[in-house]
């Protein structure tokens, strides 16, 4: 189910600013576990599971992904493009893309062959302006399908790797959305007193915009932000968080220390594995927006370890997502039976 959801949703596009086109997939998976869907004015999806008290807990994971946007249609049916969100141009060479024009069309991003590329030129860092999407059509034909402003994404089918690991595009932050789905499933089973808002936010990749509006609309008592974090690879320091070792709990100024402590206590009590990272200031997550929403919202940040972030082969361990989803459900259950004000009181 978890794998099916991720394979399904990662294959669709939700490029920042274009998240309104494929919302039906979210609805299909969240509807069985929630009571209502509302969208705020920026388009974030807010699935509410009603509780029995007045308390409001917001879970937030961004549904948007990085993408490409056409800037010019050239002779020979080639397209120049810019990026929506941060992309390393080197990761785009020799990729297949889907261009979401009047109809979806296939394209490839090639590169000049070595015989017309000097050794010096090959060593120079690539810039987006050096790359083109090859549509295989003439300029006149492609102009009927694609316009300046049309978006595209790398085309990548999700791949099942060994064990519970998978590789796909846009696991940043569909992995976080999948955690919400796991929590929703768990809470449906064990019930909850608080009102839970599973929020798939928009436009995180372009500056955490969506979370401002959805946070304001929900006005939660606390928020749990779900993200992806840098999972250890051979080119990273040995203390980096690894795949399959549970969520990465963040410490730093953006997060409520007492709420974070409570989450850690509960994970320890129920034997959920965890890892830690420190983020003293800017996090580059929806916590930026949520923490300073209205009069302020106590936040915690949990990240799923992910390798090769912002490439089309982002890799995660499904076990981390499952564990995190269950741990959050347990956390909410314990909060339901505690005096939240006492926990949060400085």
């Amino acid at each position: 189910m978890l794998k099916e959801f991720l394979f399904d949703i990662c294959s669709e596009q939700f490029v920042a600013g274009f998240e309104h086109l494929n919302g039906h997939i979210l609805t299909k998976y969240f509807e069985p576990y929630t009571d209502s869907l509302e969208k705020d004015n920026l388009g974030s999806y807010i699935f509410k599971a009603k509780g029995t008290n007045e308390r409001k807990i917001m879970l937030a994971a961004h549904i948007d992904e990085i993408g490409l946007m056409v800037t010019k249609i050239l002779e020979g049916g080639f397209l120049s493009f810019t990026s929506v969100g941060g992309i390393n141009p080197a990761s785009l060479v020799a990729q297949e893309v889907t261009i979401f024009g009047k109809e979806n069309i296939f394209g490839v991003i090639g590169i000049k062959p070595p015989h017309v590329t000097s050794e010096e030129e090959r060593k120079k860092p690539l810039k987006l302006k050096d790359l083109y999407i090859d549509t295989g059509y003439t300029k006149e034909e492609v102009e009927k399908i694609v316009k300046v402003g049309t978006i595209a994404t790398v085309k990548r089918e999700a791949i099942a790797l060994q064990g519970s690991r998978i590789s796909a595009k846009a696991l940043d932050d569909r992995a976080g959305v999948a955690v919400m789905l796991e929590t929703a499933k768990e809470l449906k089973k064990i019930s909850h007193k608080s009102n839970i808002y599973y929020t798939a936010t928009v436009q995180e990749e372009t500056g955490q915009r969506g979370a401002y509006a959805s946070g304001y609309k929900i006005n939660p008592d606390i928020a749990i932000v779900l993200e992806v974090g840098f999972g250890k690879t051979p080119d990273m320091p040995s203390h980096s968080p690894g795949l399959g070792k549970g969520p990465i709990v963040s410490y730093g100024g953006r997060f409520n220390p007492k709420l974070t402590k409570k989450f850690v206590e509960i994970c320890k009590k129920y034997n959920y594995p965890m890892q830690y990272e420190v983020v003293p200031a800017r996090t580059g997550t929806d916590a930026e927006a949520l923490q300073i929403n209205r009069e302020g919202v106590p936040c915690i940040l949990l990240s799923i370890p992910l390798r090769y972030m912002h490439t089309s082969v982002e890799t995660v361990d499904l076990a981390d997502i499952e564990i995190t989803g269950k741990a959050i459900a347990r956390f909410i259950n314990e909060l339901d039976n505690s005096d939240l004000e006492e926990i949060l009181c400085f």
Binding site: G86, I87, N88, A90, S91, I159, A160, L161, S167, F230, T233, D235, M236, G284, R307, Y308, M309, H310, T311, V313, T315
Partner: peptide, 10 residues
């Protein structure tokens, strides 16, 4: 099945 990844751009 395998993937050749790349360090995160960040």
């Amino acid at each position: 099945a395998g993937v050749i990844g790349s360090k995160a751009v960040h």
